[in-house]
Amino acid sequence: MTFGLGRMRRALRHLGSARVPAGSPRATAPRSRWRRRAGNAARMVVALLLVGGVYAAVAPGVQANVASQPSAEDIAEGKAIYDASCITCHGRNGQGVEGRGPSLIGVGSAAVEFQVATGRMPAARQDAQVERKPPRYTREQAQAIGAYIQSLGGGPELPDETDEQIVAGGDIANGGRLFRVNCSSCHAFGAGGGALSSGKFAPSLANSTPRDVWAAMLTGPQNMPVFGNNQLSPQEKRDIAAYIYTLQTDPDPGGWGIGRLGPAAEGVAIFLIGMVALVLATLWIVGKQQ
């Protein structure tokens, strides 16, 4: 639902900032850069108002889904899914089953949304590390299960913010600074992930949504340390999520990024592209003519 809503709002924003038709006198009149910017800003304001209005008018029910107080229907839906898919390992009412799955009392809805929406849960088998895979449940369903687990024993919750809101509210420069101190050591500068001891690894963040990033920091899934709200404030989490979003969406300015894997990939490239091309060239240069 969040994403559907996001799409709608994006469409509305486009509507708001639509260009003036080419034939109109304003478009042909010479305008200074400042006037153009002022015009853009004015249209932006109008668009935002419009969006806000429409949002308030059509979307109150949707908002409840990401709100901290979920509806009873959500909890019921979550319980239904839980009883169908999770109960085998995590037991009745999230009590946990010895040797199969841990208790979920107190893990909070953030952890559930992260684990289910990224496809890690339900887990296929017990491994060194549970991996991201195509999720079985939608984010809304994941949130519903989260609501159910939350109702059982509380725990960390995600804020009532969509991915777009998180990104829009973040300061990427500060996020970058925090990323380099706290995250890059495991997830690497390019957020491509890295190896940990004995088969464990820090996953790539290429497909992580801002809410996933937030949930991971908040709950410390698997071997990731917890970055509670006392340590990294919600604003700082927003900054980091926005920075990671920038890493994902800002195209490489220097050409093909070869996976941003660093010098190892560059070394492979110079031999596979550079040396191979030049050795073929030497064969051609020296080769005799028929």
């Binding site: 491509g192 190892a264 110079i270």
Partner: peptide
Amino acid sequence: VVSAASQPDWYVM
């Protein structure tokens, strides 16, 4: 500050 997969250029590797 450090990054996973910190490598030197290939001839130092």
